[in-house]
Amino acid sequence: MSRLELITPEGLRVDGRRPKETRRIYSRTDLLAADGSSYIEMGNTKLITTVYGPKESKNNNSNSIINVEFHLASFASGSTAKKLRNDKKLMENSIAIRDIFESVLIKSFGRSEIDVFIQVLQSDGGVLAAAINGTCLALIDAGIPITDYVTACTAGYCNEQAILDLNYIEESSEVPCLTVALTPKNEKILLMNMEHRLHLDNFDSVLSLAKTGCQTIYESLDECIRK
């Protein structure tokens, strides 16, 4: 299937995990002088999110309540190549995050807006998923009313089995990679994004694995909010 041996005969992955294990998640909130802020680590993917608002809207012609800015630090990923075309990808991510959180927001803000800034410090796969989880924590930290958490996780399919929470090596070796964001209470899927091709027969197993991944992450985030 792929050039690299992603799962050893013993059933271990490149970083020593079992196929259905997530990476270590570490998160904390309330670290900066913003209205809300969070730091999240999913394995080696690390990012900081800050939320400012709700505050007076300066831009009256836009209909959106949330503005998202997504930055990737130049030292975040291994390659030092210029990433000019990468802007499109980042913009896609920020639009996805904006749409996800506008759907869970309880809108009672009049003319105000919320600014979200995401800074990726280290990128090791699953950046979009980590950004969604980080934004969720920061919004809760800012005391902004939302109907539920939003958690996100990736899942892939290789060697005839579904694998959870891909890292950069797995993500970049032609493994189909599915990112799912959902509200953990009623499992409403808010985002589903897949790269590469995957046979429909295998799709269900990947999706359900991603869903269980989201629930695991929810438990971890909930623990973080409760301090």
């Binding site: 309880i106 809760i140 902004i144 409760r226």
Partner: peptide, 13 residues
């Protein structure tokens, strides 16, 4: 807020 006739929290606190 109310959802399916249940009272649900929308913020952490």
């Amino acid at each position: 807020f109310t959802l399916n006739e249940q009272l649900v929290a929308s913020v952490a606190g």
